[in-house]
Design a protein around this nucleic acid. Structure first.
Length: 298
DNA sequence: ATGCATGAGTA
DNA sequence: ACTCATGCATA
């Protein structure tokens, strides 16, 4: 494992944004129905664990069939460790610090100088309304179709995913801020959770309507903004070998205890927190729309 | 397009 | 300590 530093060069130089809409959207765009609001709130809080993955294995490859011995002899001890019923849990080493935002693990804890962002998070919730019944809301095909349509039109408008993300902030929808290129990309490729897709759909739909409207009127304006902000966060890169090991462990136990995580971390020479996060992300990956099963009532 | 990471909200 | 939505960094 190695932490790759990053020359803090041009990530935030000048960039312009296609302000496809500075105009406000009429309030009636979001008729508020108590029921819908409640649902929206739920979506954002991710309160419905309606996913019951099993069909998973995304692009990463088959992680459920990785053989434990595929990564060397040094892992003998851990192999037992990863077997669910081994019964022994040695109190082990002290070096693996605990993954608390204060404990030495989070070296670069939070100081990413004020760029433009920091998750609008649950924000978009409020926007999730329209579309009367959950019958429609829950239909994966409807979402898939929309995502596809969205992408096509976006491209036709000559707008990038990043543009859309920023533009969303200009669309003054209550509780709706900007989003990253990543999120727009994931929406289009259906690699977000089902709930996330549903929450974002109305927002993107609103943007699309407005963008096309303005495109018709040829009313584009450009805004330029800059921002100087260094102190990049580092990104640990896990080697293929390490990844194979992790996948093997994951196949046996997707939710290892803190103790096991610590042991795995030690075996692989990774920081405990890195391993913990890896497992979290892996679990989250399984729930992504494209490959997950749907809620029972759909 | 995707991997590793953060932070809010929960249990 | 986990889930979820999201994002920076990078392939």
């Amino acid at each position: 494992m190695q932490t790759v530093p990053r020359s803090s060069m041009s990530s935030y130089g000048l960039y312009h944004q296609t302000d496809l809409f500075s105009t406000g959207i009429d309030a009636n765009f979001f008729p508020r129905h108590d029921l819908d609001l409640a649902k929206a709130a739920q979506h954002v809080k991710g309160e419905s664990l309606q996913y019951d993955m099993s069909t998973t294995t995304a692009s990463g490859g088959p992680r459920s069939q990785m053989s434990l011995h595929a990564f060397g002899q040094a892992d003998t001890m851990l192999e037992q460790l990863s077997v669910p019923m081994t019964g022994f849990e040695p109190p082990v080493h002290s070096l693996a610090s605990h993954s608390h935002p204060g404990a030495g693990q989070m070296v670069y804890a939070s100081p990413y100088s004020g760029c433009v962002q920091q998750s609008p998070h649950a924000a978009i919730a409020a926007a999730h309304t329209m579309q009367s019944s959950h019958t429609i809301d829950c239909d994966p095909r409807e979402l898939e179709a929309f995502a596809e349509r969205f992408k096509q039109r976006r491209i036709k408008l000559g707008v990038t995913q990043a543009d859309v993300g920023k533009a969303l902030g200009n669309l003054k929808l209550p509780g709706v801020g900007s989003l990253s290129q990543s999120t727009i990309c994931r929406f289009e490729s259906l690699t977000l959770s089902h709930n996330n897709m549903i929450a974002l759909k109305p927002v993107l739909a609103a943007w699309l309507d407005e963008a096309e409207r303005q495109a018709r009127e040829n009313k584009q304006s450009h805004e330029i903004f800059s921002s100087a902000a260094d102190a990049k966060r580092k990104r640990t890169s896990i080697t293929a070998q390490e990844k194979r090991s992790l996948e093997a462990y994951f196949a046996v136990q997707p939710r290892p205890s803190g103790e096991k995580i610590a042991q795995i971390a030690e075996k692989l020479g990774l920081k405990k927190n890195v391993v913990r996060v890896w497992f979290c992300n892996q679990r989250q990956k399984q729930k992504r729309m494209k490959f997950s099963n749907l809620p029972a009532h759909c």
